[in-house]
């Protein structure tokens, strides 16, 4: 069973069909990737998870209990006021659609990658539900 799974995951084609298709409209992705509404609490846990390419590698976030926030991308405090939910979703799913040169990884894209470690090949960094949870969390980061 694990072997079969590994074989299936090794084939990008079959995996690609498992990714939810996303449509970019007016600089955002208006349609949620899942039918389950995102949970901001889960999102806040996911963005800290070092096993999931934590945003904290690059961004400062209003998560004071975590040490050593990165300084590579802009701080995300207030980001929920700067962008709409569809805009946040696109910035997470595929920031390269906005700026092909950006350092920020696409969290829900599998094409166009080179030499991906076998155990991650054919899978996006986040699942569709994790995208929704993190988007929901980012939307709560309002400027005051």
């Amino acid at each position: 069973m694990p072997l079969l799974l590994a074989v299936l995951m090794a084939s990008p084609l079959s995996q690609a069909e498992d990714l939810v298709a996303v449509a970019i409209v007016d600089g955002g992705i208006p349609a949620p990737l899942t039918s389950v509404p995102g949970s901001p609490d889960r999102g806040r846990l996911i963005v800290r998870d070092i096993s999931k390419a934590s945003c904290l590698i690059c961004h400062a976030m209003p998560i004071p209990e975590e040490p050593d926030h990165g300084q590579i991308g802009p701080p995300l405090e207030g980001i929920g006021s700067a962008y709409s939910v569809p805009e946040l979703r696109l910035r997470l799913v595929d920031p390269k659609a906005i700026n092909p040169e950006t350092l920020m990884p696409s969290y829900y894209r599998i094409e166009g990658l080179t030499g991906v470690l076998a155990r991650y090949a054919g899978t996006p960094i986040y699942t569709a539900q994790e995208i929704e949870d993190v988007v929901a969390y980012l939307a709560t980061l309002k400027a005051d």
Binding site: L56, K96, P105, L113, T114
Partner: peptide, 25 residues
């Protein structure tokens, strides 16, 4: 100079572009 891996970064992006900056700790 080739981007690679799931994070899609090249050696150059970190070691030419970001030298001196903090990647977490």
């Amino acid at each position: 100079f080739t981007r690679r891996g799931q994070l899609d970064l090249s050696c150059s992006q970190c070691h030419d572009g970001l030298a001196g900056q903090k990647l977490r700790g």
